[in-house]
Design a protein around this nucleic acid. Structure first.
Lengths: 188, 188
DNA sequence: CGTTCTTGTGTACAGACGTCCACAATGGGC
DNA sequence: GCCCATTGTGGACGTCTGTACACAAGAACG
């Protein structure tokens, strides 16, 4: 791998458009695999297949690494939620749909969901990240509010968060049937 | 501080009952101050006023440090919640009481609440901690279920979690008046 | 008093880390 | 075709970390 870093196959030239984006993706992949503890410049460089110096060049300090990852994760999550909600028919059973979503988030999507919470929580200790985290959360509420009244939207958003957090740690992982009555208790 | 560690004032003898407990307290204090990133044997030793070797002797590896802190935090939280609920009159306004509690948790109690979430989340990546975290959560639900039906208890527990998480990051911190309508939306 | 067990201490080691910086390489402007 | 700003690289430095381990010291007990 590092025997001949100058081989043509590995050279992308000094202008390698998208390298920064690939570094951001690699950052999230590293967190998913090793957690925030394992997020180091070296791990990101290795995951992205670039030399160590490249990470500090494009993404600077470790805090900048975190900030970029948080913004990328928030954007991806909200886009996904928007598409999911937009894909529902107008008269859809919202509680059932959300139960499906949560089941997916703690099942096939588990690793990514954990990363999302780790990044969100990281914002608590980093004032620079708080605006991004706040916006993330209020975007979710706004998306839900397109289907319910505002107070219900806040209640449902909070409940989804709590259910996700609980379901991530529960063993065995709760099923759709476990979640549905709780969501029905809140949604009209 | 370390100039004369053998001075009588600092010597507590080879049997220093409670030293382990003080190390656990120091562990939580270190997390509160520096976050999980800053949790090191050296920081704990310094906070507890004991030599470095003492931390590894009493609490072993870093994972054991985390596990002990998680159990202590869960126990303290649940005891506090139990006392709070037991102190309410039978016909109390539960939504108002919970709004007060959340306001307190994200206000004067903010630092400790952050530690609680950091420890809870840490359990996601450490199978050994998951039982403690699961029990923590189900204890909360059980306490609330003494005042409501089971499904409502689950919905309220999840909503409290979500509201805490949201309120910790929001700027400015939500007030009791912000939280109350949301809780009333769920509680009878 | 002496032995033995538990508790406590100081230090040393090897590894990993963030960050910095001198230097290389390229490609667009002229 | 040359020059220079931008992009990319590799290695080095100093710091901090977990952990191990040899040794000290009081206590229980005969």
């Amino acid at each position: 791998m590092t025997t001949n870093p100058r081989s043509p196959a590995n050279r992308r030239g000094p202008t390698d458009p998208g390298r920064r984006d690939r570094l951001v993706e690699a950052t999230i992949a590293v967190i998913a695999e090793r957690g925030l503890d394992g997020l180091t410049h070296r791990a990101v460089a290795s995951a992205a297949g670039v030399p160590l110096g490249s990470t500090t060049y494009h993404l600077g300090s470790r805090d900048e690494l975190l900030a970029t990852a948080l913004r990328a994760a928030a954007e991806a999550y909200n886009r996904r939620l928007r598409e999911f909600l937009d894909g529902l028919p107008a008269d859809a059973d919202l509680a059932a749909a959300l139960a499906d979503m949560i089941t997916h988030d703690v099942g096939p999507h588990r690793d990514r969901t954990i990363v999302e919470y780790e990044l969100y929580l990281a914002a608590l200790r980093r004032p620079a990240l708080r605006p991004a985290a706040t916006a993330w959360m209020s975007d979710i509420t706004a998306l839900i509010a397109r289907r319910t009244d505002p107070v219900t939207a806040r209640a449902v958003t909070a409940a989804i968060d709590g259910l996700l957090l609980e379901s991530l740690v529960a063993d065995p992982t709760p099923t759709r049937a476990d979640l549905l009555p709780v969501l029905r208790r809140i949604l009209p």
